[in-house]
Each structure stands twice: as structure tokens, then as C-alpha cells.
């Protein structure tokens, strides 16, 4: 009995070790390759350069066009996901009858499970052509279509996590508000949402981090043209899409071109890591308030 327990404990520990080890390995490889990259390209040129042409004869290694592409698509996604996600969360948590909430939530979670490649083709073959009818100047590859589709993809995440945060607000607070003659709208917006704010913020940050890291949709539908622009109608390239492009290409290992993907990957990793950390910290704080 003792021995069996010991074996189980050890097996569980080994599983944990595998995932921790993998993460550590990823960080190690990213760090080593990024340092090798930075030996050839000064960090200032990498971070603040405005041209990204590593595969050209005269290569330039300014990452800003890729960052701009990522920010642009993510911003469009958040413009779609945040307002709609929050409104649907308020509706589900404060207005919908419990039966409806119980059926809608699993459906939302299924939506979150659709493979992103499906969303990518949806953006390329359906949303962009649809948008082209109203926006004549829209290119076949652009930031707008994938941004909107990414927003739709992230919406369930925002909605579901925000709704969880609002549900965690004690009923007594709502009653306190109703007892003073507040309407449902006033109670929702002035008591429940502020009380759930750190949880909602955590959900939004997580959504931003998802948007930044999202790869398939932009690789398929946003184009492969790194350019420093805020115009959502032209082809661009995001950090993730660039990594896909080079990984799938025939760039030889060990070259500077090859190392760019690790440097870009490192930047991506740091960005999303910090955002996830912020999100986790906020959720923790929220738990402290209503333990």
C-alpha cells in the first residue's frame, strides 16, 4: 500500500517534471538562439528598426513592422471581442434566466474549441470577400478580416471568463443594491461589474495575450508583407505569421535568417508571458476580496 502510493506520487511528479522540463527547454533554446542572433544584430536595430527584410540580399532586421502587424490585428480583434464579450457576459450573468445560462455556456466553450485553421479559412474565403463588397480598396490579404474573425474567436473566452467573475460576486451585494431601489441595469453596471472588475480585467488581458499569440488565422489570411502601417486594408505580417513562414521555408539551420525566428519568438514569449502574469495576479487579487 505504502509502496503503491509512493509509485503514484513519483509518477505524478514525473509528469509534472516533463511539462516543467519542456518549458525550461523552450526558454533555454529561445535564450541561446536569441543571444546568438543579438551577437550579429545590435539589439537597438532589432527593437527599433523600421524595416524587416531578413531574407533579402541586403537584409534589415528591424522588428517593428512585425510588432505593428501583431498590434494592429490584435487591436481589431479586441475592438470586436471586448465590447461584445462584456455585454454578453453582463447579459448572461445578470439578465438571462438560469436555464438559458446553463445551455449557452457550454456552447460558448465549444466555439472556443473550433480549430483556428477553420477560422483562418473563414477569414480568407468568407469574411474578406464579404468586406470587399463594402470596402472597395480592401486587398485579398489584409488585417481587417482576420482581425474581425480573431475577435469572434476570442469573444467566448472574454464572455465566459467575465461571466465567471460576475457570478462570483456575492448575491448579497446585488440585494444591497436592489434594496436601495436600483434597477437591474444600475445594479449590473454600478455594483456587479465594478466588484468583478479585476476578474474582468484578467479575462481581457488573457484575451489580448491570446490575440497576440494567435497564429493560424493571420498566417492564412493577413498576408506575408511586413510593413509598418496602421492601415488595416493592406497585406501585413504578424510576428507569429513570420515564424510560420520561415519555419516552413527552406532556410538552412544556424544561419542568421534562421535565428530571426527565435529572436521574434522570444519577443512574443516575453510579451504574452508578462500579460499572463498580469492576468494571474489580478485573478489572485480578486480571489482575496471574495474568498
Amino acid at each position: 500500500m505504502r509502496r503503491a502510493e509512493f509509485a503514484i506520487e513519483w509518477a505524478l511528479f514525473a509528469c509534472a517534471l516533463v511539462s516543467v522540463g519542456t518549458t525550461a527547454g523552450i526558454i533555454l533554446v529561445l535564450t541561446v538562439e536569441t543571444l546568438a542572433f543579438l551577437r550579429e544584430v545590435p539589439i537597438a536595430e532589432f527593437l527599433f528598426g523600421t524595416e524587416w527584410t531578413p531574407l533579402f540580399a541586403t537584409p534589415r532586421f528591424g522588428v517593428l513592422p512585425l510588432v505593428a502587424g501583431t498590434v494592429l490585428v490584435s487591436a481589431i480583434a479586441m475592438l470586436v471581442a471586448l465590447p461584445m464579450g462584456l455585454l454578453s457576459a453582463v447579459y448572461l450573468s445578470e439578465y438571462a434566466p438560469p436555464r438559458l445560462r446553463r445551455t449557452v455556456k457550454p456552447v460558448l466553450e465549444i466555439l472556443a474549441g473550433v480549430p483556428t485553421v477553420v477560422y483562418g479559412y473563414f477569414a480568407l474565403l468568407f469574411v474578406t470577400p464579404l468586406l470587399q463588397r463594402v470596402i472597395p480598396g480592401l486587398a485579398g490579404f489584409n488585417a481587417l478580416g482576420p482581425g474581425i474573425v480573431m475577435g469572434i474567436m476570442i469573444l467566448p473566452l472574454v464572455s465566459s471568463l467575465s461571466e465567471d467573475a460576475m457570478q462570483a460576486v456575492p448575491r448579497g451585494l446585488r440585494e444591497g443594491s436592489y434594496a436601495l431601489g436600483a434597477s437591474r441595469m444600475q445594479t449590473s453596471l454600478r455594483v456587479v461589474v465594478p466588484a468583478a472588475l479585476s476578474g474582468i480585467t484578467a479575462a481581457c488581458i488573457l484575451a489580448v495575450s491570446r490575440a497576440i499569440g494567435e497564429t493560424m488565422i493571420v498566417a492564412i489570411a493577413a498576408g506575408q508583407q511586413p510593413r509598418l502601417t496602421w492601415n488595416p486594408l493592406v497585406p501585413i505580417e504578424t510576428m507569429t505569421a513570420y515564424i510560420v513562414q520561415v519555419s516552413l521555408g527552406d532556410t538552412p539551420q544556424g544561419t542568421i535568417e534562421y535565428r530571426t525566428i527565435f529572436a521574434v519568438g522570444m519577443l512574443l514569449f516575453l510579451g504574452t508571458f508578462l500579460l499572463n502574469l498580469a492576468s494571474a495576479w489580478l485573478r489572485e487579487r480578486f480571489r482575496e476580496v471574495y474568498g
Binding site: 448579497g172 440585494e175 444591497g176 436601495l180 436600483a182 434597477s183 455594483v191 465594478p194 466588484a195
Partner: peptide, 20 residues
């Protein structure tokens, strides 16, 4: 009901200040 509750105030058994 909203107008009713304005006229009939309530102090709850479990205190419930808003997080404000």
C-alpha cells in the same frame, strides 16, 4: 418593484457593503 424598494428600505442580516 424598483419604486417599492425605494420606499421600503432594508438592512440585511449579513452586512453587505459595496466594494467602494
Amino acid at each position: 418593484v424598483v419604486a417599492l424598494r425605494r420606499r421600503v428600505g432594508m438592512v440585511f442580516q449579513k452586512s453587505n457593503p459595496f466594494p467602494k
